[in-house]
Nucleic acid binder design. Structure first.
Lengths: 150, 150
DNA sequence: GCTTGACTTCGAGTGAACTTCAGATCCTAC
DNA sequence: GTAGGATCTGAAGTTCACTCGAAGTCAAGC
């Protein structure tokens, strides 16, 4: 077993990500590999960190394109250092915080709005401002507005 | 303008959900309508609350199927009461809390794990337990494990 | 009577993120 | 040397949550 480079099967096993997904990520430019003479993929060890990052980022709701952009800030001529990853992690902390904030507002509004039964009633400006007022455009936008933060 | 029933256009305007999506939701059994003689859809007012619920639930990460199941607990022979919605709202508060918890753990682990640079290193059992140990199966499962809560 | 606009159905198209398949090649073990 | 498993490629298929387009119906205003 080579201690420098990993086969696609080894990476798949260690990350829990299917080989087909790894090939897909590579085609999408999210990860990279070198090839053996036979054309088999060989991954440097740090690809596992990259993949972990990808999966975690997906969990926060980022699309693969957004993730690719984030990863683009890593140096491609050398193995990313601790400092590189640190910078990247810091860069999307606000994103996670925003997501948490959204869910917290959602939770609070729900118990205070769907919960109280006012959701969709004309008196409730929270969720349903346009129902009688049509003042600020349609929709349950108030609760969901933070889509704009995307 | 009828004060009892809403046309698909009116519902679309008031919820911010496209008519095509409303027809889709109806085909999927998430909402229901009666028809005029001409075959046009007419929605009772409480459909707006239903739709708000659907959109909010999607935001928490529920699939339409899960949402349909949740809505199935509402009475279909009468307009849901305040109490009905209250019960429903309570029923997925744990879900929101779990989602928030997941993100919080993610955030903390990131600053303490990707942040510190240990992510994917063999010494770090947090994100990458299988890399040298292969003890509890593969993958960055630790961080993501709460998928199981789905 | 005719245009306009909101509505109808049904089938096909979209984009994201993969998975599956077929057919070929490569490596290891017996 | 041959069987079995891992890998390769490229194209097609899948699921989700819709959207779009075509062709037709219906009601209101001029």
């Amino acid at each position: 077993m080579d201690h420098e480079l990993l086969s696609i099967g080894a990476v798949s096993e260690r990350t829990g990500v299917a080989p087909s997904a790894l090939r897909f990520y590579e085609a999408e430019g999210l990860i990279h590999s070198t090839r053996t003479e036979a054309g088999h993929r060989r991954y440097p060890r740090d690809v596992i960190r990259r993949i972990s990052f990808i999966r975690v980022a997906q969990h926060v709701g980022l699309s693969l394109e957004e993730i690719r952009n984030a990863l683009a800030s890593l140096p491609d001529n050398r193995t990313p250092t601790q400092r590189d990853w640190e910078r990247l992690a810091r860069s999307w902390r606000p994103r996670i915080d925003a997501q948490i904030g959204l869910l917290e507002r959602l939770r609070d509004r729900l118990t205070g709005c769907i919960g109280c039964g006012c959701l969709s009633m004309k008196a409730c400006r929270l969720v349903n401002p346009g129902d009688e007022l049509a003042s600020r455009g349609p929709g349950p936008r108030f609760v969901l507005d933070d889509d704009a933060a995307r």
